[in-house]
Computed example of a mutant assay.
Amino acid sequence: MQSLVHFLSSRMGNDFKILNWNPIQKCILVFILFIQIKVLWIIWKAYIFLTPEVQIFVYLSEVRLQLYIEFFEIFVAVLFIVGLLLISKSRKGEVILPYLSVNVFGLTLIFDAYMAGVFSPNTMTNAVCYLFVGFILFNVRVMLSVITSLAITIGVISDQTIKGNLVNAPLFNFETIGTPEYLNGFWMGSIAYFTFPIIIICILLLLLILKQWRERESYIAHLVQFDALTDVYNRRKLTEILQHLDRGKKHAILMLDLDHFKQVNDRYGHLIGDQVLISAAEVLKANIRSTDILGRYGGEEFLIILNDTDEKNARSIAERCLRALAEIEHPLTHDSTFNVTASMGIAFLYQGINVKDALNSADIALYQAKAEGRNQIRFSKDILG
């Protein structure tokens, strides 16, 4: 059993989110659903063979023949699943196999639909469920191919049934079922049995897919607003926040740049550099107020927006951040660490000052802090006089 689980995990991947599966993995799901449908048919036939009083409502020879066919179909479906698992990473297979799998699934179930009645309520309901799930799992071309093949096949069967060349629902003996059919408990029970389990399976599958869809949308929304490395706001989101700040209040813009960061990357490598950025972001988050906003503005540069604050508070928070950054012991080896300082320029945004000018002032102040020795703070007014 463990070897089977390992085999499935290695072929299907550890990510069991259906939306992340490749087309071949989705084909495997189709055949698993196919086997479940066949098992429902087998259970129904077992009930008939174990319940003599309902046998008058069916043709036992047809029931027995279809039972043999279903066992064979399950065997073939298992072979398909094994084969698909073995080639689950084939690029060519991802293009071709969805067409084959979906059409095999659809055309095989047409035989079941014919045996139970092409015009029966369960056939129509189940067809809608399958198509709906199919359009979510596969691209439009794949689904149009199966719709075309099914429409032609069902059209021929319907035409021949209307003309009397084919028997409608050959499994059932309508002479004993009587007319109207809905007065017969066995007939109605059979229709319900082949309708509701499929609806429930499809609804559960759709709920799972929709849940994963929402998670994916949430993740994409997160990526649009947050920096992938440090998990703080990115430049686009920071710009958006700045544009919507209440200009009736005074806000401090802190432009922070890690000192000599290029040397860190050159000397220790980019992986160490990335860890320095992650640690810096964590320390900055811990040293600003809950109402303040932190983001990565680009490279080793961070931007902090202090909402509704004055110069005194801005300086206090800025000094606390620089002090905390300088105290971080960045690990290099098990017994070796190094420190990285930062420089900061501060400007204010309020009524009459546009965002571009405020950012430019903070950037000029930052440049001045670096030019005067780094690891220090400069306010834009210090430069402008």
Rank of each mutant, 00 (worst) to 15 (best):
residue 7 F to T: 10
residue 7 F to P: 08
residue 8 L to Y: 15
residue 9 S to M: 12
residue 10 S to H: 15
residue 11 R to D: 02
residue 12 M to H: 12
residue 14 N to C: 04
residue 17 K to S: 05
residue 19 L to K: 03
residue 20 N to D: 09
residue 20 N to I: 01
residue 21 W to M: 09
residue 22 N to F: 14
residue 25 Q to N: 13
residue 29 L to A: 06
residue 31 F to Y: 13
residue 32 I to G: 06
residue 33 L to H: 02
residue 34 F to N: 07
residue 35 I to F: 07
residue 40 L to P: 01
residue 48 I to C: 07
residue 50 L to S: 12
residue 53 E to D: 10
residue 61 S to R: 11
residue 62 E to H: 12
residue 64 R to G: 04
residue 68 Y to D: 02
residue 69 I to P: 00
residue 70 E to K: 02
residue 75 F to E: 00
residue 78 V to M: 12
residue 79 L to S: 08
residue 81 I to E: 09
residue 82 V to R: 11
residue 82 V to E: 13
residue 83 G to L: 10
residue 89 K to E: 15
residue 92 K to N: 06
residue 93 G to H: 12
residue 100 L to W: 15
residue 106 G to A: 15
residue 115 M to S: 07
residue 117 G to E: 15
residue 118 V to G: 04
residue 119 F to S: 13
residue 119 F to D: 13
residue 121 P to A: 13
residue 124 M to Q: 14
residue 127 A to M: 14
residue 127 A to I: 10
residue 127 A to F: 15
residue 128 V to T: 07
residue 136 I to L: 08
residue 139 N to I: 00
residue 150 L to V: 10
residue 153 T to E: 12
residue 157 I to K: 08
residue 158 S to W: 12
residue 159 D to W: 11
residue 160 Q to R: 09
residue 161 T to M: 13
residue 163 K to C: 01
residue 170 P to K: 11
residue 172 F to V: 10
residue 173 N to P: 14
residue 176 T to A: 13
residue 182 Y to E: 15
residue 183 L to P: 03
residue 184 N to I: 05
residue 186 F to H: 03
residue 188 M to L: 12
residue 189 G to M: 04
residue 195 T to G: 02
residue 195 T to Q: 01
residue 196 F to K: 03
residue 200 I to Q: 05
residue 202 C to P: 03
residue 203 I to K: 06
residue 207 L to N: 10
residue 213 W to R: 02
residue 225 Q to G: 04
residue 230 T to Y: 14
residue 231 D to T: 04
residue 237 K to I: 02
residue 242 L to W: 15
residue 243 Q to N: 14
residue 245 L to E: 14
residue 247 R to G: 03
residue 260 H to S: 02
residue 265 N to R: 01
residue 267 R to S: 08
residue 267 R to Q: 09
residue 267 R to F: 10
residue 269 G to V: 02
residue 270 H to V: 00
residue 277 L to N: 07
residue 282 E to F: 08
residue 284 L to Q: 08
residue 287 N to D: 07
residue 289 R to Y: 06
residue 290 S to Y: 11
residue 291 T to V: 08
residue 292 D to Y: 09
residue 299 G to A: 03
residue 304 I to K: 05
residue 309 T to Q: 02
residue 317 I to K: 04
residue 319 E to V: 00
residue 321 C to M: 11
residue 324 A to Q: 11
residue 326 A to V: 00
residue 326 A to Y: 11
residue 330 H to Y: 14
residue 346 I to R: 02
residue 346 I to Y: 02
residue 346 I to V: 08
residue 349 L to T: 03
residue 350 Y to D: 01
residue 355 V to I: 08
residue 357 D to E: 06
residue 357 D to T: 02
residue 364 I to Y: 06
residue 371 A to C: 00
residue 375 N to D: 09
residue 378 R to K: 05
residue 383 I to T: 00
residue 385 G to I: 00
